Structure formats: structure tokens, C-alpha cells
Simulated assay, not measured.
Amino acid sequence: MKSDFKKLIPSYSATKGTFSLVSVPPIRYLKIDGSGDPNTAESYKDALSTLYPVAYKLKFFSKGELGQDYGVMPLEALWWADDMDAFTSARDKSLWDWTLMNMVPDWITQEHFEAACSLVARKGAAPALERLRLEPLEEGLSVQTLHVGPYDDEGPVLDEMHHRFIPEQSLTMTGRHHEIYLGDPRRTAPEKLRTILRQPVAPVPE
């Protein structure tokens, strides 16, 4: 039976126009870091070209060798900048840092990951394998919402999340801004793109 983690993990669901508090479980990801404008930075293109060959190699290994099939999960990313206004309001993409991510099940081990990387390397189609790693992420309590529309229209939503909703709930931001891309920009009109916007938080100390 094929596992669909988008349905099995509640935090992969969000509602447009609503900020929700969710508890995100520890999740393991393929991760690759970089910086710069995702539309123009060669490092971003290399990261994408590396992440998915390994993700699919792990999926087919899991199905064939471990007898556990699952759907490859959507692209995710952590985003930050020294001045977060460069991300939320100014949208100066040249100042952005990022970690591209793809979730993998808990049963995928470091040994499985290294074997998949070796197989992908033999084909010479993954230009940034040395930057790829398998690592857990623990976000815990988080605020999230669903954004529908172009990525460049996220700014006002993030501004409201960061400067209105989170303070009103007596919370403070902790981890990095997290996006989950439920639509493929290569096949989906910008106005129909669906993106979960997430911000880890913690109670404000009394």
C-alpha cells in the first residue's frame, strides 16, 4: 500500500485566509543550502537538479527493496535573511538564504541515503551532491496558512502573520520561515499556485 504523507501528517494541510496553530512532528528531510535569488542563482538550479534524483532513487529503493512504497513529497524550503524585511516586504531576493528540502520517511536510513547518492553520482546528473544531506527538523508549535497565488504576493500575508497574529497570540518567532509548495510552477498558472506558509513559534516568556 502506497503511503501519502500529505494526508497522514495533519500539518501538510492549511486553510486560505486563516492563521492556524499546529504542532509539527519531527520530520526527516533531504536538505541542501544556498543563497541568492531563486529565479537566477545557479546554486538554486543545481540544488533542484540534485534533490529530486536522490528523492526518487530513495522512493524506488524503498518500494523495491524494503517493500514500503510512498509518494515523493512536494518541494519545501526554509527562507531567511539578515534583515527579514528583505523577505517579507522589500522582497530583495539577492539577500535571501535558503534550504531546499524534501521529506523522506523515518525508515530511510543514512546508509540508504549514501547508497542513493552513490547511484545518482554515477549518472553524473546531480551537480550539488556534496551539499546534500539527510537531517531531521523539529519545528513543534507553528503558525501556518495557505497562500493561493504568485509567490511574490506572499509579502502582505507574511507581514500580517509576523506583526499581527503572532504577537496577538502572545507568541514569538523561533525557527525559520518555511514554505511547502503544493503546486508545480512549471505546470500551474501563478494565480493558482498553492503554498503553505509556516512560522515556528514559542510562547513569549513572562
Rank of each mutant, 00 (worst) to 15 (best):
K63D: 03
Y44C: 07
A55I: 03
D46F: 12
L58G: 01
S23A: 13
A41T: 11
K59F: 01
V24C: 02
L48M: 14
G64V: 04
P26W: 01
P38S: 10
K59A: 07
S43R: 09
S35P: 06
D37R: 10
F61E: 14
V24A: 00
Y56F: 15
G64P: 00
K63F: 07
L48G: 12
L66W: 00
K57Y: 11
V54D: 06
L21A: 08
D46W: 11
D37C: 10
P53R: 05
D33R: 14
P53N: 01
L21M: 08
A47M: 13
S43N: 10
D46E: 13
D46I: 07
G36D: 05
G64N: 13
I32K: 00
P25A: 05
S35Q: 10
K59L: 03
A55W: 03
K31C: 14
V22C: 10
S43L: 10
V54Q: 08
P25C: 06
P25G: 05
I27E: 14
P26M: 00
Y52I: 06
Y29W: 05
G34T: 02
Y52V: 04
A41Q: 06
L51A: 06
A41E: 05
D46A: 15
S23T: 14
L48K: 11
P38V: 04
R28P: 01
E65F: 08
K45Y: 14
S35T: 09
I27C: 08
D37V: 10
R28L: 06
Y29K: 03
I32H: 01
Y29C: 05
L21Y: 02
S35H: 07
K59D: 00
S62K: 05
A55G: 00
K45G: 14
Y56E: 09
L48P: 09
K57G: 04
S35C: 02
E42N: 12
Y29S: 03
F61H: 14
D37E: 15
I27V: 11
G34L: 02
S35M: 07
L66G: 06
A41N: 07
S62Y: 03
T40Q: 15
K57W: 07
V22A: 12
P25I: 05
I27K: 10
S62H: 06
V22L: 10
R28F: 01
Y44Q: 00
L66K: 13
D37P: 10
T40A: 14
S62F: 02
A47T: 13
L51G: 08
A55L: 00
E42D: 14
Y56S: 09
T40D: 12
P38R: 08
E65G: 04
D37A: 12
N39F: 04
V22M: 13
K31V: 12
K63E: 07
S35Y: 04
I32S: 04
A47I: 12
Y29V: 05
G64H: 11
K63Q: 05
I32D: 03
S49G: 15
D46H: 14
K31M: 12
A47F: 12
K59R: 07
V54P: 06
P26E: 02
P25H: 06
R28M: 06
S23Q: 15
I32W: 01
S43Y: 02
P53W: 00
S35A: 13
G36L: 01
P26N: 01
L21K: 10
S35F: 02
L21W: 01
Y29D: 08
L21I: 11
Y44H: 12
G34P: 01
S49V: 03
T50A: 08
A47L: 14
L58R: 07
S49T: 13
L21S: 10
L21Q: 09
L58F: 00
A55Y: 01
K63A: 09
L21C: 05
